[in-house]
Design a protein around this nucleic acid. Structure first.
Lengths: 340, 340
DNA sequence: CTGTCTTTCCAAAACGGTTTGGATTATAAT
DNA sequence: ATTATAATCCAAACCGTTTTGGAAAGACAG
């Protein structure tokens, strides 16, 4: 670390008080224009940048947002997350906020410690939650401390919800209709951890659609994966080894579906003909799998930006024209289900 | 923000000085065991967590690392980045460091401001660089300020390099041998921005291999993309519309290659037969494109962790057994080039 | 009993900003 | 000439820690 240039150095050089330097740079109107000009010039010339820790300490805010990725496995690399973090980062940066990210297994002690360190230690002004659980301690914790936060999908906890929700209802109705139209009746579901709100909502929608089409759900065709490629691979390997295997597999997300493609390939099946596979997310690249993946597309990048924009509204504490955003995924039919 | 519990509150409750509370929690040996026990208990009960800004200010370090993604387009979403950030985050977290991320267009004023805010403002203890440029102002800037940093790929700037390098030489030799063995002689290259070290190294290796195999390089077959899917798509669309189109396309990264697949598909070509496509990176999912992508696989996640581990060594200032890591990518032959 | 160690604790000084509550001077109004 | 007003500036308090340099008290040795 080099010599640090403090506000004191700038003040000394100009024979001004640090107060005046501070106020000149912050644009207060009680400093003469000529003085301000000089301050700005000298500050720039000396390469002065206010120390963040000092400023944060005094101001009691950090201009920093936090996002903790709930990752069970250490090695987590979902394109969904890439897009999501990109959205968070871009929107934060556009508002001069920084984004702090970390990962911790869901419901672990590690997760609790990390949240505590950031929230009670005042490291962030607000947080973005993801992979919301049905009952989510994070929601209760943050709401209890009145710390600003937004989430993708609402938990069942009785707190007032600010965030984005994607309703799988209509999308699944379209998808299931389409699959049944293609002659499928043994339709499997590979989901995620059952405490996950998305798992709950999507599977519920799936069930509802099959019921209303009077198609039987075979419980042996419903498996729990873990949202990863590997999880989808293992689950579908099992499914396809059954005596009466499914003819279609609906997956809770695209990564699971890509694992499913892999498994079906390995079993020597022609995907789209012998077995249909569908995903959920519309990750970039889903259009380029082998074969291209039918999926329910949601605008992840935009959703992430929206979340940050909502969170910033919450932090600034003003009136919030909208606190909740609901949207529908869009069905993209591709060859993994036999195309049109 | 709720009432904040400070060290003063804990001290008051126990009739101790804040000094003692601080030292008890930090594990100094000049506090009685019984006292320490009480302090820890009460601190936990009151939910005390040291204020980060105050601690950072006093200690003059933040236990935070920074990574600024050079993204030209606001909307980047490279799986490579997802894996990279996952690696950075995991290794940082494993050492109780936080990771600050942001994005800024390469060489923009924005980028400079951001680095300055983080470095001179003392927001981070060290930085990870990526997409290193041949002459890289970031390298000069950080080296000049003696701020710890590591980079993936070394720039040509004369500073002492700590980081990871992936040498494309042998991998490309294998790949080109293989392509020539498959009968290709019109081989195109779709690269990235020419100031990029990876572009320079990879293209140089590509040229060298073709030369030593006495295969002509047609300059019209060498195009500059931008490392994105869209860039690869556009470039390959142009290539395949030439009077004498290439029979093989080598791409500087997997994303470009996936765009190439897309373009070839659209032109009605049978990939792997009419035209061969190869990438570089080995992103998760490359094995599942349509058709599966031949690529040079590098362990991105591991590289990222290694970078952080090197950076932490640099920050702690001790002896560093290794300062530079070199490794070779591994050729993965798949159907996009016709398989084996 | 005196002096020297240990053990245990603490007052006060940083760290580098921002903000409060004037002080000073010049200008305008009476 | 005096008073009110506006325009500039600044000393000092404050944010919540960590760390320095002892102080106090008890144990021990001579």
């Amino acid at each position: 670390m080099p010599v640090m240039i403090t506000i004191r150095d700038v003040a000394r050089r100009l024979n001004l008080s640090i107060t005046t330097v501070s106020r000149a740079l912050d644009g207060y109107d009680d400093v003469a224009e000529e003085t301000r000009r000089q301050v700005i010039e000298v500050a720039k010339e000396m390469g002065y940048t206010p120390n963040r820790a000092a400023r944060e300490l005094r101001r009691q805010r950090t201009d920093t947002l936090g996002y903790i990725l709930p990752a069970d496995k250490p090695q987590f690399a979902d394109p969904f997350i890439a897009e999501f973090i990109a959205g968070l980062g871009d929107e934060a940066a556009a508002n001069n906020f920084d984004l702090l990210v970390s990962t911790a297994p869901a419901e672990s002690a590690q997760e609790k410690t990390l949240y505590q360190r950031w929230v009670q230690g005042g490291k962030v002004d607000g947080l973005v939650l993801n992979y919301t659980r049905l009952r989510d301690w994070r929601v209760q914790y943050l709401a209890g401390l009145k710390k600003p936060f937004v989430s993708l999908e609402r938990s069942l906890d009785a707190v007032d919800f600010v965030g984005v929700e994607v309703d799988p209802g209509e999308g699944y109705a379209e998808l299931i209709d389409y699959l049944i139209g293609m002659g499928h009746s043994r339709i499997a579901y590979v989901g995620g951890w059952r405490e996950l709100k998305i798992q709950h909502d999507r599977f519920a929608a799936f069930e509802r659609c099959l019921n209303s089409a009077a198609v039987q759900i075979d419980p042996t065709l419903v498996l729990e994966g873990d949202l990863t490629l590997e999880g989808g691979y293992q689950a579908v390997l099992r499914l396809l080894s059954l005596n009466r295997p499914p003819t279609a597999v609906v997956c809770v997300n695209d990564l699971t579906a890509i694992g499913a493609l892999h498994a079906a390939h390995e079993m020597g099946l022609r995907i789209g003909r012998d077995v249909a596979v569908a995903g959920f997310d519309g990750i970039m690249g889903a259009a380029h799998t082998n074969p291209p993946l039918t999926t329910l597309d949601q605008p992840v990048y935009t959703i992430a930006r929206k979340l940050v924009s909502l969170l910033l509204g919450l932090i600034s504490g003003g009136e919030m024209p909208e606190r909740q955003v609901r949207l529908q995924p869009k069905l993209m039919i591709r060859e993994s289900t036999g195309g049109r």
